[in-house]
Amino acid sequence: MEVRTIKVFTTVDNINLHTQVVDMSMTYGQQFGPTYLDGADVTKIKPHNSHEGKTFYVLPNDDTLRVEAFEYYHTTDPSFLGRYMSALNHTKKWKYPQVNGLTSIKWADNNCYLATALLTLQQIELKFNPPALQDAYYRARAGEAANFCALILAYCNKTVGELGDVRETMSYLFQHANLDSCKRVLNVVCKTCGQQQTTLKGVEAVMYMGTLSYEQFKKGVQIPCTCGKQATKYLVQQESPFVMMSAPPAQYELKHGTFTCASEYTGNYQCGHYKHITSKETLYCIDGALLTKSSEYKGPITDVFYKENSYTTTIK
C-alpha cells in the first residue's frame, strides 16, 4: 500500500517557510505537534488534498525554529505562539472599519479597549522592536488589523473576551517599542525636605499616572512627601515624541487643539466601556464603527496623549 502524501510549508514567522512532505494517514499533531492554519487549530486533523502548498504555523520545537521565533517575536515564552494563534482565530472574524481616516474595530468580545489602543497607536510616533509587531502594525494602518490585535493580546497575556485596560495595554506595548531616546527629568520640591531631581528613561519617561493635564504637570502637581507634608512635583525636561497622561476616570474637559487623542471610560472596574476622542479640525468621538463630532467635550476621561518633541522648564 502506497503512502499518500502532500507537500506543505511549516513556519513560526510566515517569513521562513520549511518544506514538509506530510503523510495523509496521520494527523498534523502526530507529525508536527500543535499546528495552526489561519489561526485555526488543526492539530487533530489529517492532511487533505486542499492543504497542498498551504502554510501551517507550528510551535518552535527545534533550534532553527526557536531562533526564527525569537528573532521575529522577541520572546522565548513557549506558550506565546499558541496564544497568538488562538487569538487570531477570533480577531480574523472582527470587522476593521476605516473611521475618520483611522483603522478602528467594530465592537465584539469586549474589544473596546483594543480599538482605543489601536486608534491611539496610529496617532503617536512609535516604532516597535519585534519585527512581528512592526509588520502587523503597518498592515493594521492599511486596514488589516487582525494579526496586530492578536499579537497585542498575546504580548499582554490576554484572551479574547476578557476586559482590558488601555493604560495597561499601552504599557505592555511600550515595553516592546523603541523608547531608548526618551528621557524625563522631574523635580520634587518640599518646604521641609528641599528639592530632589529624578531622571527617568524609556517607558517611565512617557507615562504618568495622577493627572490628565500635561500643562498642569509642567506647572506642578501636589504629591505627598515622605515627611508627610505636601510637596510639588513638576516637569523639568521632556525628550520624547509623545507623552501619555493618565488618571482614574473623572469628568474632564478636553479643549480642541490642546491634545492629540484621549480615552474615555464609562462604567466601573468590573464592567465598563471605552471610547476614543481625537482632536482634528474639530473633536471626534470614535466608538467602534461609530463616529460623532463636537466642538467641545466633557466626560469621564482616563488617558490623554500629547505630541511632544523637546521641553525644558522655565521655572527657576
Rank of each mutant, 00 (worst) to 15 (best):
S294K: 11
F32P: 05
L133P: 02
K127P: 12
Q230R: 13
M1I: 02
G288N: 07
Y73T: 05
G288R: 02
A132G: 07
T260L: 15
T302H: 00
M244A: 00
C271G: 15
V221W: 06
N178I: 01
P224V: 15
D180R: 08
Q270C: 11
L290D: 15
F148S: 02
C285P: 00
P97V: 14
Y113M: 04
N147G: 10
G33F: 04
H51S: 06
Q30D: 12
K298V: 15
T120Y: 04
T199G: 05
Y73N: 02
P130D: 04
L119E: 02
A117H: 02
K275L: 05
C227T: 02
V21A: 12
A142R: 13
K44W: 10
N309T: 15
T226N: 13
N110K: 04
N157G: 11
N309L: 09
A145D: 01
L163S: 11
V58K: 07
T312K: 08
S263A: 13
G210I: 00
L59C: 11
L59S: 12
K44V: 14
Y137N: 03
E253H: 11
V22N: 05
T192P: 04
N16W: 06
T103Q: 04
F217R: 00
K298I: 15
E144A: 12
T211W: 01
E125W: 05
I301S: 01
P97L: 13
E144K: 11
N110G: 01
P34D: 10
G101A: 05
C225T: 01
T226E: 13
L290G: 12
T19Y: 12
E204I: 00
G220I: 01
L17D: 07
A87W: 02
Y311H: 13
Q251A: 10
T116S: 09
I301R: 01
I277W: 13
T91N: 05
K54D: 11
A231D: 01
S25W: 10
T278S: 12
T103E: 02
T278W: 04
T199I: 12
E68Q: 09
G299F: 02
D303V: 03
A289S: 12
A115F: 05
R139L: 11
L290Q: 15
D303L: 04
D303H: 01
H74T: 02
A40K: 13
V58H: 06
D135G: 07
M85A: 05
Q31D: 06
H51Q: 10
N111A: 05
C285G: 04
T292H: 14
K275C: 10
L291P: 06
T120A: 15
E168V: 08
H18P: 05
L17S: 07
G299E: 02
E162V: 04
T226V: 14
T43V: 07
M244N: 00
H90F: 12
K158E: 01
D165H: 01
P60L: 04
I315P: 15
D23C: 13
P34N: 14
P130E: 06
V236C: 08
Q195V: 15
P60A: 11
L81N: 02
T258E: 15
N187Q: 12
L200W: 05
I301M: 03
K93Y: 11
L59E: 15
E264N: 02
E296M: 10
K191F: 08
D62K: 08
Q123F: 02
R167T: 03
D77A: 07
V304R: 01
A145S: 04
Y138D: 14
K275Q: 07
F32M: 10
Y96P: 05
Q216R: 09
M170S: 06
Q237L: 14
G53V: 07
D287R: 00
T116I: 04
R184V: 02
E2I: 09
R66K: 14
E281G: 08
Y269V: 15
T169F: 02
F242G: 04
E68S: 07
L291I: 13
R139C: 12
E144D: 15
F174L: 11
A289P: 08
T35L: 09
E162N: 00
R66P: 07
I45Q: 15
Q230V: 13
T192V: 11
E253F: 08
S246V: 03
S50P: 08
H51V: 06
S240E: 00
A140S: 07
P97A: 10
T211M: 08
Q20N: 11
F56P: 04
C112N: 04
L37F: 12
F70H: 08
F259G: 00
F259R: 00
N178K: 11
T10A: 10
E296V: 14
Q31H: 10
Y284L: 14
Y306P: 00
E68R: 07
S295F: 08
Y208Q: 06
Q216F: 04
D13H: 03
G220K: 02
T266S: 13
T10F: 11
Q31G: 07
P47A: 11
I223Q: 09
Y57A: 07
D135K: 10
S246D: 00
Y72C: 07
L290I: 15
E308I: 11
I286A: 01
R139Q: 13
Y274F: 12
D109H: 07
T282E: 13
N178D: 12
L179N: 00
V166G: 02
L235Q: 00
R184G: 15
L65G: 08
P131E: 01
P131V: 04
T75F: 03
N129Y: 07
L186Q: 13
Y214A: 01
S25T: 14
V188R: 08
V236I: 11
T198R: 13
Q195F: 12
K275D: 00
K233R: 14
T120M: 09
K298S: 14
T76M: 15
P248K: 10
G288E: 00
V99H: 13
T278P: 00
K298P: 04
T75R: 08
Q175D: 06
Q251D: 12
F217D: 01
T292G: 09
A115I: 05
L235N: 01
G194R: 02
T116P: 05
P131D: 01
Q230C: 05
A154S: 07
D180H: 10
K219L: 11
G143H: 05
E253K: 08
N129G: 09
C261E: 01
Q196R: 14
E204L: 07
G202H: 05
Q222A: 09
A132N: 05
Q238S: 02
N100W: 05
T5E: 11
T10S: 09
L291N: 13
T55I: 12
D180W: 06
L119V: 07
N14I: 06
F305E: 00
Q222M: 12
A146K: 06
Y72W: 10
Y57W: 11
M244I: 03
V21L: 14
V99M: 15
Y57D: 06
Q216E: 12
K95D: 15
V99D: 02
M245C: 13
N178L: 06
G194I: 03
Q251C: 13
Y208P: 00
P131H: 03
N14W: 08
E71N: 09
I286W: 00
A115W: 01
V166L: 08
K280N: 15
G33V: 05
Q230I: 15
Y137E: 05
C182S: 06
A145Q: 02
M244V: 01
F128K: 03
F80H: 03
M207N: 02
T313R: 14
A289V: 12
T159F: 09
M170T: 03
K95Y: 07
Y155M: 01
K95H: 14
Y36T: 05
T103A: 06
E52L: 11
Q123M: 05
S213T: 01
L119R: 01
Y252T: 15
S263E: 00
Q134E: 10
